[in-house]
């Protein structure tokens, strides 16, 4: 029943997004044209990728607040690498970005796995550290467009079937994450570790190691986004993506990923991110002030949380039924 409800929930998001697009297109000619929709998707690509990383972590009953700082450090590092060594091929730079991001994610994961520190504390710490490292690395200087090579800046903008490579990257990541979550042992272990850690241990799953890998996934995707961010905005500085970790969490919450772990889907995270993307792109078009935009985004997040809480209560009823059984047991005690 829960699963069906979530199908319903995802359908609901699709419908809401469609209605928003329809409403906006009546207010603004050309809003719902294929070109503009592709544009919105392209604009939301980075959020989609980061939200998927955040989702894997949240599913294991953890949270990664360091994703945006990871984006800033990795982005700065590959931007400077490109500026210093223009002859390095883009492929190598990509590998470096994924590697740095993965290592930063693994550091979070090690603290959570080996030292058993709550993830919110670990990543609150590394959030500051990673951004500080970006400052130390650059000395506070910017990497500007003219210092970066053309392939570095232009590749994500190349159009393929009407959509820039940046958008295609998000689509590929969505497909890969769908495969990982639904068809691999790690994906199943992630759901089980968050859904019921004790039962997962009894089923032979190493919950700590599963969390570690969730952080590595989140970090690696953040590293990829570090490159994508710097190339998209053609500038690298210490404060890029500041506060963006909250958008990733918001996308997950709107998409129905339970902050208690164990419940959520790739489709939910993607739709949550798209929803935020549509709002952010559409509101300026119909002349709503940036402050009202922030209030609207905030209201949507709270609505989503209420929606989630109601679903938790549904779960509660099932737990109560279980408690009914255990009270029969207590009759025994």
């Amino acid at each position: 029943m829960i699963r069906q409800l979530f199908k319903f929930r995802e359908m609901l998001l699709v419908i809401i997004i469609a209605i928003l697009l329809a409403v906006f297109s009546t207010r603004s000619q050309g809003f719902a044209t294929p070109g503009n929709l592709a544009n919105i998707f392209n604009d939301t690509s980075i959020l989609i990728i980061l939200a998927l990383g955040q989702m894997t972590v949240i599913l294991t009953k953890s949270i990664d607040l360091s994703v945006a700082a990871n984006v800033a450090f990795t982005g700065m590092a590959v931007g400077m690498l490109n500026a210093a060594q223009p002859e390095l091929p883009l492929m190598l730079i990509l590998v470096v970005a994924l590697g740095i991001g993965g290592v930063l994610g693994a550091i979070n994961g090690m603290f959570v796995w080996k030292l058993n520190i709550p993830s919110i504390v670990v990543t609150l710490g590394t959030l500051t550290i990673y951004r500080g490292m970006a400052f130390v690395l650059s000395g506070g200087a910017w990497v500007n467009a003219h210092q970066m090579t053309a392939p570095f800046l232009q590749t994500p903008r190349q159009l393929f079937l009407g959509l820039p490579i940046l958008g295609w990257t998000a689509i590929v990541i969505v497909a890969v994450m769908y495969l990982v979550m639904s068809r691999t042992f790690l994906g199943r272990a992630i759901y089980a570790s968050g859904g019921n850690p004790t039962a997962a241990v009894y089923a032979g799953i190493d919950v700590g190691r599963t969390r570690f890998f969730a952080f590595v996934i989140s970090g690696t995707l953040a590293g990829l986004c570090g490159y994508l961010w710097v190339s998209r905005y053609a500038v690298g500085y210490v404060d890029i993506a500041a506060g963006f970790e909250l958008d990733t969490v918001a996308a997950c919450v709107i998409g129905g990923i339970s902050t208690l772990g164990g419940i959520g889907s790739v489709a939910g995270a993607v739709l949550g991110a798209l929803f935020l993307g549509v709002i952010k792109n559409a509101l300026p078009v119909i002349n709503i002030s940036p402050f009202a935009q922030m209030a609207i985004s905030g209201s949507v997040i709270i609505t989503a949380v209420i929606f989630n809480a109601r679903q938790e209560r549904r779960r509660g009823r099932i737990i109560l039924r279980d408690r009914g059984a255990s009270e029969q047991i207590e009759v025994a005690a």
């Binding site: 639904s182 691999t184 042992f185 199943r188 859904g195 032979g204 737990i319």
Partner: peptide, 28 residues
């Protein structure tokens, strides 16, 4: 508390400790 992951479907609960047997080339 110890036995089942209540959010996961029945079939995934039953297969959870046997996944090495039901997967091929690392894919479930």
């Amino acid at each position: 508390r110890h036995g089942a992951v209540l959010q996961l479907p029945i079939y995934q609960n039953i297969s959870l400790p046997s996944l090495t047997r039901t997967s091929r080339l690392g894919l479930l």
